[in-house]
Design a protein around this nucleic acid. Structure first.
Length: 420
RNA sequence: GCGAGUAUGGUGAAGUGGUUAACACGGUAGAUUGUGGUUCUAUUAUGCGUGGGUUCGAUUCCCACUACUCGCCCCA
């Protein structure tokens, strides 16, 4: 038997209903904020990710799915969403508009060992905004996942925020970090020793050394901000206050992708059972990325959110997304009425009623069971006797009373009933 | 890349070196050939991840492989 590839999953049954529900909620929220849907290819030239995401990141160094196509071009399945959207922004010259606000939902691929809340193919909902360096946009971008989690009823959500400042600030900060760590680098783990040269920021994120005094005494980003960067960060926080979004400034927060500048943030769910996979959403500002990928100087900001992880969190919290999971009508035929049953079912469907029918000619008892399973609001019985006068029996589920309704009046009848 | 654990029907699982592999859920049929969700009855794995070994005999013991799960690293 052929099995699915490691780290992938099949979406079906109840889970696919939850999935579609979340997707439609995301769509509605994004439309409310006036964001436009964008879809970019699932694979791109490998170079895009090397230059965009950064050669020093773990994602690029050891987690991409790389392959050569039949013309021997280097391709990669996308490991994250931002680089492709930026490429599209530049290639389609969207910079002719002053501001572009977009959202996407799509698969990302990373070659990792799977575990709870982590897959080799996972889906991210993300948004990217180009063209504005207003701190209002930072607050708006953060407010979107916060609203989504709130609408889903997710508790224990924590927004963590930090800033890297502009290029000057973060380069000053990196120097300070190297100076701080270099003399005693041997006290740290092997990974951190490597990180010192590749990306010293990531040492702060190390969990092996998190108890080490060297880390606790490490310089803090916010102490190395130049006045402009400091002022910018303050305004972002002010706007978050204005929207009454709770947050926690975490000077040690850093991210695994190289392109970030200024604001970076993570949203974590403090939920038992999520373990270290508790980051539901991460993002930040990337004011140099468009230029890095050969576009005009353009500020940008965005986030990515793992839908599998979100679903897992909702599951752990016992949040039921399927409250309205039912159909309007189930049609049961009795006797030799298969054609009429199918026809009436079709009539209901064409008129917008969620309808199903018994396809097997089972006995009535079984058909009623089936109707219950689908949680049908109404049961329609098509019997030979009633058909003689062009009528069917309509029964509200769970009630004994039933009515004889003319087939031509059936739609109006159900319309009125279901409206109420 | 490193570490630990698990592998028995559609699902959750119990179990044993030796003729019929518990139990529960789900499925199907019937009691009820025109009215249900309760109940009752029957039925539902020639099979215990794959390959090899030990043995008179292996689902059970041993080895390898594979898959899955959970940690670490990293990330969504």
């Amino acid at each position: 038997m052929i099995q699915k590839p490691k780290g992938t999953y099949d979406l079906y049954g109840e889970n696919s209903k939850k999935w579609l529900y979340i997707k439609s909620l995301i769509k509605n929220i994004c439309e409310t904020y006036n964001y436009n849907y964008i879809k970019t290819p699932t694979f791109e030239r490998s170079e895009l990710f090397h230059r965009g995401v950064g050669d020093s990141t773990d994602i690029i160094r050891k987690e991409t799915y790389d392959f050569k196509d039949r013309s021997n071009r280097d391709m990669s399945l996308r490991p994250e969403g931002t680089a492709g959207v930026v490429r599209s922004y530049i290639e389609n010259k969207m910079y002719n508009e002053q501001i572009i606000k977009q959202y996407y939902i799509g698969s990302n691929f990373r070659y990792e060992r799977p575990q709870s809340g982590r897959f080799r193919e996972h889906t991210q909902f993300g948004i990217e905004v180009f063209g504005s360096d207003s701190p209002i946009i930072d607050a708006e971008v953060i407010s979107i996942p916060v609203l989504l989690f709130k609408m889903l009823g997710l508790k224990g959500i924590k927004v963590k925020i930090n800033t890297l400042g502009d290029e000057e600030s973060s380069s000053d900060y990196k120097k300070a970090l190297i100076e701080h760590f270099k003399p005693k680098i041997n006290e740290l783990c092997e990974d951190c020793i490597n990180r010192l040269d590749i990306n010293p920021l990531r040492i702060l994120d190390c969990k092996v050394d998190s108890g080490n005094q060297l880390l606790k005494k490490a310089p803090r980003t916010i102490d190395y901000l130049n006045p402009d960067s400091e002022n910018y960060f303050k305004r972002v926080l002010d706007y978050l206050d204005l929207l009454e979004i709770e947050y926690e400034v975490d000077p040690k927060l850093v991210r695994g992708l190289d392109y970030y500048t200024h604001t970076i943030f993570e949203i974590q769910a403090d939920i038992e059972g999520l373990g270290s996979q508790n980051t539901l959403c991460g993002g930040g500002r990337y004011n140099n990325l468009v230029e890095t990928l050969d576009g005009p100087e353009t500020p940008g900001i965005g986030f990515g959110m793992g839908l599998e992880r979100l679903l897992l969190a909702l599951d752990k919290e016992n949040i039921d997304l399927l409250k309205n999971n039912n159909i309007d009508a189930f049609v049961i035929g009795i006797g030799n009425t298969k054609e009429e049953t199918f026809k009436i079912t079709n009539m209901l469907r064409v008129n917008g009623f969620k309808t199903d029918m018994d396809y097997f000619g089972k006995n009535i008892s079984s058909s009623f069971k089936q109707a219950d399973k689908y949680n049908s609001k109404y049961i329609i019985i098509v019997g030979e006797e009633e058909l003689k006068s062009d009528k069917v029996i309509v029964k509200e589920n769970n009630k004994d009373a039933q009515e004889l309704i003319k087939i031509e009046e059936l739609i109006n009848y159900l319309d009125e009933k279901i409206e109420n």
